[in-house]
Amino acid sequence: MPEGDTVWRQARDLRAVLEGKKLVSSDFRVPAHATLDLSGQTVTSVESRGKHLLMYVGGLVIHSHLAMEGHWDSYPVHNGRSAKWRKPTFAARAVLTTDQAQVVGFSLGTLEVLPEALVGNAVGHLGPDLLGPGWDAEEALRRLLAEPERAIGLALLDQRNLAGIGNIYRNELCFLGRIHPASAVMGVPDLPRMAGLAKRLLEANHDRSQRSTTGGQARGEAASWVYGLAGKPCKRCGVLITHGTLADPAFTVRAARDIYWCPRCQAEPGAS
Results as ranks from 00 to 15, higher is better:
A101P: 09
A101I: 12
Q102I: 11
Q102R: 11
V104Q: 04
G105C: 01
G105V: 01
F106K: 01
S107P: 00
S107E: 06
L108N: 07
L108A: 05
G109H: 11
G109M: 08
L111W: 06
E112G: 11
E112S: 15
V113P: 12
V113D: 05
V113F: 10
L114S: 02
L114K: 10
V119P: 07
V119Y: 00
G120T: 01
G120A: 05
G120Q: 05
A122F: 13
V123A: 07
G124W: 10
G127M: 08
G127Y: 11
G127F: 06
L130E: 04
L131V: 06
G132K: 15
P133T: 01
A137K: 11
E138G: 12
A140E: 01
L141N: 10
R142T: 09
R143L: 08
L144T: 10
L144R: 04
L145R: 15
A146W: 00
E147Q: 10
E147P: 00
E147K: 03
E147C: 04
P148E: 02
P148K: 03
E149W: 00
I152N: 09
I152A: 09
G153A: 01
L154D: 09
L154P: 01
A155Q: 02
A155E: 03
L156R: 02
L157T: 09
D158M: 07
D158I: 07
Q159A: 04
R160L: 07
I165E: 09
N167W: 02
I168S: 03
I168T: 08
I168N: 04
Y169M: 13
R170G: 03
E172C: 06
L173N: 02
F175H: 14
L176A: 14
L176S: 13
G177I: 00
G177M: 08
I179A: 00
I179K: 07
H180V: 09
H180Q: 01
P181N: 14
A182L: 07
A182W: 02
A182H: 05
S183K: 10
A184E: 11
A184G: 09
M186W: 03
M186E: 13
G187W: 12
V188M: 11
V188D: 11
V188W: 13
P189G: 11
D190M: 08
L191R: 07
M194I: 15
M194V: 15
A195S: 08
A195K: 03
A195I: 15
G196F: 14
L197I: 05
A198F: 13
A198T: 07
R200N: 09
R200M: 10
